[in-house]
Each structure stands twice: as C-alpha cells, then as structure tokens.
Design a protein around this nucleic acid. Structure first.
Length: 105
DNA sequence: TCCATGACATCAA
DNA sequence: ATTGATGCCATGG
C-alpha cells in the first residue's frame, strides 16, 4: 500500500474526482477537504495537472472557489457545456447551481 | 535549511 | 472585476 507519499495523495484525489457526478463541479478546497487535506487545495490542482497520465478522470469538473475554469484550457468549457453545466461566463461556471453536494444535504 | 513555484482560499481596498 | 497581501503546504533546486 504505502508507496511514495505523493502516490497516496494522487490516489485519493483522483478517487474523489472520479466520484464527481455528471453535470456537477467541485472546487479544489472541496476535494482537498474530502481527502482530509483541506490545506492542500493547491496539491489537488498540481495532481490534476498530471492526472491525465494516471488515467482518464473528469478533471474538467474541477474549478476554483469562484467557479473559474482552468487557465489555458479551452476544452474544459466545451466539456462542461455538453454535460449541462450552467455557465456564467466563457470562463466561469454557475457554481452556485452546479456545485457537487457530496454531503447530500 | 532557505528560496521559489503553484489548475488555491480568503480578506481588504 | 482587478490588484495586493497573507495563509497554507508539497515539490524541486
């Protein structure tokens, strides 16, 4: 089980990212919290930046607290739109409507 | 150890 | 919305 320290984070982060339902988005802080690393929101982003080499995960469903999309990634907007995610702007999703409620209430 | 970086979060102006 | 500052912490030189 215990491999390199980063592998554990990668596994937990990607595991949560893979749980994000279609048509919803999650924030970095939200994911960081779910894995018990609320302070590691930045690590989430760092892992997602190379998540594509760890498998196919819906990393496009992860945005920052303001619902802003990833800088320099045009496809993200297109991917979110075709999932039915409400957009506020070309660079922001209406996170108030599509925020993933993993607590269920 | 010290310094710089980062797909972040939060506050103040 | 934008800019500046601060907190947070893993990673790399």
């Amino acid at each position: 089980m215990s491999g390199k320290p980063d592998e554990d984070l990668i596994y937990e982060i990607l595991s949560v990212v893979g749980e994000i339902p279609e048509g919803c988005v999650a924030t970095y802080g939200q994911i960081a919290r779910l894995i018990g690393r609320e302070r590691n929101a930045r690590l989430v982003g760092k892992v997602l930046s190379m998540a594509d080499m760890y498998g196919e995960y819906p990393c496009h469903r992860v945005v920052n607290h303001a619902g802003k999309l990833v800088p320099g990634w045009d496809d993200q907007r297109r991917l979110l739109m075709m999932e039915g995610v409400p957009m506020k702007d070309d660079d922001h999703v209406d996170i108030k409507k599509c925020r993933w409620e993993e607590s269920g209430g």
